[in-house]
Design a protein around this nucleic acid. Sequence first.
DNA 1: TATCTTTGCAAGTGATTACTCACTTTTAGA
DNA 2: TCTAAAAGTGAGTAATCACTTGCAAAGATA
Lengths: 175, 175
Amino acid sequence: MTEKQEKILHAALELFAREGFKTTSTSKVAKHAGVSEGLIFRHFGSKDGLLEAILKEGEERIKVIFSDIIFESDAQALVLKTLDAFNPRNMRDEELEFWKLQYKIKWELEQYGEHKMEPLRLALTNAFEKLGYRNPGQEAIRMLIELDGMATRYFLMENFDYESLITFLKEKYTK
Amino acid sequence: MTEKQEKILHAALELFAREGFKTTSTSKVAKHAGVSEGLIFRHFGSKDGLLEAILKEGEERIKVIFSDIIFESDAQALVLKTLDAFNPRNMRDEELEFWKLQYKIKWELEQYGEHKMEPLRLALTNAFEKLGYRNPGQEAIRMLIELDGMATRYFLMENFDYESLITFLKEKYTK
DNA sequence: TATCTTTGCAAGTGATTACTCACTTTTAGA
DNA sequence: TCTAAAAGTGAGTAATCACTTGCAAAGATA
């Protein structure tokens, strides 16, 4: 990958996450990346192609993070690890941008990236089963919903107290 | 309000909810409403003005729905009523469209409509306190998050089983 | 050094954007 | 019935959109 190619990807991720995909023009991306607009189309073919490249790169990163959780053998630890993995305080800037993009895209393109979360959902279901919960499957979905909700609030609400809610949930899930 | 004015509002709500605010052109709204494009600007001043009018109308409707919950004196009933109020099966088409718009707008304009949910949050906090929960405030937030998450999944996931999750949660919140 | 491919740029393309303006029709009050 | 305001239209506006094209510079291979 060329240096300018990476600059385009980086600039696009930042702008798409901040201002949305459809509402960010390719000329803006080019300007922000310090590159001619035509180069975007040379390398990525189309604006959609650019988005695809960003999402593909990000998915690889997600897999790495998830694999650390999924292969945890202790059920209780797995549940707590999941809660920690989504704590924005544990993320680098670029990771945060990528997550935000996921949520924005979800509503802009109206497609929930189910398959991405599927391995985590299964691992959580398994963990809750080991821990003796009555409805492990539903518990897993519930927890994923809670993580979604916290992320949403973290990104969109100014005065959201992420830390104390996660402490509250950790307590709930340890007994 | 004129007949055409209402037609514009209705068409705009439908299109904004389906395809987003910024990505829906005023010409499309006009065409869908069977009205000249200029009329939109005559009545609502700008595209933003049109959105404001839609949101204002919707907020009135939200208040009505919420007041039925909030003034419920029985704490347990209030909690269950809340879960039912957000069940898409209990909603008319236009109500559903309005809720979907809320979620889309949230991410498009990056502003969480906190104040809208505030009365419900307080009522839930109060209810959980009456029911003897250890952290009533956090429980209320948790429940609002769960409702958000379920709505998101209802709107964006094809095979999401809303009904069984809400049954699961009702069970959780009755004991 | 000669040749071919990749990388890059600047100046375009037609289509679409939110919005305006000059104008006509409808409505309401005296 | 007369008149002024409100409602409504349709053709315009400059700006911006995603994308293309022609051509130069840079790298790689021989």
